[in-house]
Design a protein around this nucleic acid. Structure first.
Length: 478
RNA sequence: CGGGGCGUAGAUCAGUCUGGUAGAUCGCCUGCUUUGGGAGCAGGAGGCCGCCGGUUCGAAUCCGGCCGCCCCGACCA
């Protein structure tokens, strides 16, 4: 732990991010290129996010299962768009048992291929459908430009893979899971997101439609926070997953897949952090309340720690994740700074004066204002206090996102506005991929999303002037 | 793959140009004093100077080769 300050997020956001991740002990680089060691404080955030997702998957009728890490290359290659899209990013095992392998094994970049290859045997009748499965796994994509949490060669995620008897049912599933992602991003991570549909150029390889939730980070750059894909019958056909429908017709199954990853730990850092470090939403804060005892003499130490431990027990009983920081080697000021850096939502200060008066001093990570609260009332009021902080963080992020979301009045205004302040920019688009590519080349922005249902803007494309066929939202993104 | 940088103590880095007993700061350990916003003093531990070879009486330093990592761009959750 260093004793000097962080880089300013306003002056150098990337440096601020790297330093926060390192000093808050969230993660560090692994020994191989692009790899990440997730430390306990970072992993705990992921575990809480996992639980929030998994509860919602179960509530919507899904079950967990697990498929192998290694995928025979021949299997991966069956869906043409899929293999072409992933080819540059796939790591391949060519040796095993001291010998060259007959058939190389891909380390999964995603599991559609191995799962649909298995669904072929699991599905014969419409009565076998739907299959509503999810797996928690690591995947590997040989990224050229790694960045802790946001883009590492290996990352942790969940991938849902469902099979359905009808197109409508599969589409409904893809949109239902997109909404689950929206709920977790907004209600748990306190990151407001726009749900939408990707342009054809930004689609998942092998998907018919890709849906996304898009968030805005503190530097006004966008981040894709989760994706849900409507696969049509592409994988059903490629892996020959067929069933007899109620009328006795042989049909290919319809599919979806959807993923949410450890990237969202990075998003949580970048959506809420400030000059002092992390500001964690209470819902995913590994420590929601830290108690910092203050004392001089041994007598004071004994009485303060006794009272503090009672307070800790009360808070734990109330279901709150609480830590009593009784380390003797650091003074209070050091602990204040450290727990602020680590994003703990509420700090409780307890000194001899407080013990004598039967109260504690509560300080919120958001405002920093100090409040004296009777000891008996600390635990009972804490659940509500944490809920208030959760809501305030979300409101703060919404205000920031809204202040940085703009309607495009002209291409020049859009390009200039992007240079000056980033943010989301929404305007009429002709639907032409070449036009999209030209805009991207000129502005370094990409289409983040289109409306779920195409929306005719009733005006000309902001770039080429042809008739607008859809309403695109652009941003520079991670 | 293109451009840039770096491998020296747990961390960050100086020392390399100009070869001559391995350094600083933070952190760590011990003791004392401290403790309501990142404490002070004293003592101490900790190094195949990325790897291999060469030049030299002598190499962290010069020469050759190799390996690895980081940053910026193209690919992406």
């Amino acid at each position: 732990m260093s004793t000097s300050g962080l880089p300013s997020p306003d002056d150098d956001f990337p440096a601020w991010y790297v330093e926060v991740v390192r000093r808050a002990e969230l993660a560090e680089h692994g020994p191989s290129r692009g790899s990440m060691i997730i430390r306990p404080h970072g992993y705990a955030i992921w575990e809480l996010t996992q639980r929030a997702l998994d509860d919602r998957f179960k509530a919507t009728g899904h079950e967990n299962l697990y498929f192998p890490l290694l995928i025979p290359m021949g299997l991966l290659s069956k869906e043409a768009d899929h293999v072409e899209g992933f080819e540059p990013q796939v790591a391949v095992v060519t040796r095993g048992g001291g010998e060259e392998l007959e058939e190389p094994l891909a380390i999964r970049p995603s599991s559609e291929s191995i799962i649909w290859n298995t669904y072929r045997r699991w599905v014969q009748s419409y009565r076998d459908l739907p299959l509503l499965y999810n797996q928690w796994a690591n995947v590997m994509r040989w990224e050229l430009r790694p960045r802790l949490f946001l883009r590492t060669t290996e990352f942790l995620w969940q991938e849902g893979h469902t099979a359905h008897a009808t197109s409508d049912e599969a589409m409904a599933e893809a949109l239902r899971m997109l909404d689950v992602y929206r709920q977790v991003a907004e209600d748990v991570l306190a990151i407001p997101v726009f749900p939408g549909r990707k342009s054809p150029g930004e689609r998942f390889p092998g998907a018919v439609e890709t849906f996304t939730i898009e968030g805005l980070m503190r530097d006004a750059k966008a981040l894709q926070c989760g994706t849900s894909h409507f696969l049509g019958q592409n994988f059903g056909r490629a892996y020959d997953v067929t069933f007899l429908d109620a009328d006795g017709h042989q049909e290919h199954a319809w599919g979806t897949s959807w993923g949410f990853s450890t990237r969202m730990v990075g998003a949580t850092i970048m959506a809420h952090g400030d000059a002092a470090g992390l500001r964690l939403p209470p819902a995913v804060a590994p420590i929601q309340v830290v108690i910092v005892p203050i004392y001089r003499s041994d007598d004071e130490r004994a009485s303060v720690l006794a009272t503090a431990d009672g307070l800790r027990a009360d808070l734990a009983t109330a279901g709150i994740r609480v830590r009593l920081d009784d380390r003797d080697q650091h003074r209070p000021g050091y602990k204040f700074a450290e727990w602020e850096l680590k994003g703990v939502p509420v700090r409780v200060e307890l000194g001899p004066r407080d013990v004598a008066a039967g109260r504690a001093v509560l300080v919120s990570r958001l405002g920093g204002d100090r409040e004296e609260v009777a000891l008996a009332d600390v635990a009972t009021g804490m659940v509500g206090r944490l809920a208030d902080i959760q809501a305030a963080l979300f409101a703060d992020a919404i205000a920031f996102r809204n202040a940085n979301s703009h309607q495009i009045t002209s291409f020049d205004a859009f390009a200039t506005g992007l240079d000056e302040g980033g943010g989301f920019w929404t305007g009429a688009w002709c639907g032409n991929e070449e036009c999209e590519a030209e805009i991207s080349a000129r502005t370094k922005a990409t289409i983040r999303f289109l409306p779920i249902e195409p929306r005719e803007p009733g005006s000309a494309c902001m770039h080429c002037g042809r008739p607008g066929v859809d309403t695109a939202t652009w941003a520079r993104a991670y």
